[in-house]
Design a protein around this nucleic acid. Structure first.
Lengths: 144, 144
DNA sequence: TTCTACACTCTCTTTTTGGTAAGTATAATT
DNA sequence: AATTATACTTACCAAAAAGAGAGTGTAGAA
């Protein structure tokens, strides 16, 4: 139940138009290492998937996220959520009850990151066939 | 010389408008695992950086890319370029001369991926301060 | 009284990743 | 005759990432 399925129409249309455009220009080279660092921490597999399920379902409990994100281990779930909390992408609300209850939700920052990734999801969805056939052609060629 | 600095004005404006929008909707949940897999292979550090320098410089030789991408080892350069070639993101043209000469260039597919990442670069650039202060606040709180 | 749910934490082991350094082939250069 | 440049490949090793599994504390259900 995760994946592309969670994007709103407005975002999709915008990202699609954007994918058909021409290439790059200039902004600020000084920020570069900083930006690289941020991207490397934020653009990992589990972060992207958690971002999506939270975007789709709103507020969720620890174990709910665990069930929604296919194949994630408890360890990775805790670790990724802590990292996301640290970066300001999610809020963590603890209810002092027993058994424990902890709720996670996206911050506006986390939400905006989800939107930024929309273009990449759309790209992947759009170009699945192209990639598959490129790979098949490459492998066939190298096997000979 | 890499980083955000290489995006064209049209892309930047489009991505900026896009970052200010509201969240997600529905597309196709069946593609999900496939899309996840593609993203996990394509959204890694070196791929993103190579994508950028090629986008900025056009056709490049092996050692030129090595010089342009800060900190990459020969091994990772070869490995990443092969993978990108396999996915259909770059073309590899070998000139049978000595010493060897090999040229790399983005395919239209590789080029479109670069554009898809534009939104993420812009997001990171825009929110550096927010992330830094979230992190500082988190760490200060946990240290007590 | 034992069991379950919850949200973890901790340790141990395996897998993956990536760096270093050496080797290859050959023509031109010093 | 030794060196340089090019674009690699291969072997080895260290570090980092990630999975598996057990442990924790407590209230309420069976």
């Amino acid at each position: 139940m995760t994946g592309i399925s969670s994007f709103r129409q407005a975002d999709i249309e915008e990202a699609e138009a954007y994918l058909d455009r021409e290439p790059p220009a200039e902004i600020d080279p000084r920020l570069e290492p900083l930006v690289n660092e941020i991207i490397s921490r934020v653009a990992d597999k589990w972060t992207m998937l958690i971002l999506e399920v939270l975007n789709e379902h709103g507020v969720m409990r620890f174990s709910e996220i665990g069930r929604a994100v296919d194949g994630i281990s408890q360890k990775m779930l805790t670790q990724t959520l802590r990292q996301m909390e640290r970066e300001g992408l999610v809020t963590r609300t603890i209810y002092p009850v027993v058994p424990p209850k902890v709720e996670y939700a996206l911050t506006p920052l986390g939400d905006s990151l989800g939107r930024a990734f929309c273009g990449v999801w759309l790209w992947a969805e759009r170009h699945i066939d192209e990639i598959e056939s490129a790979r098949a052609a490459f492998d066939a060629c190298k096997d000979k």
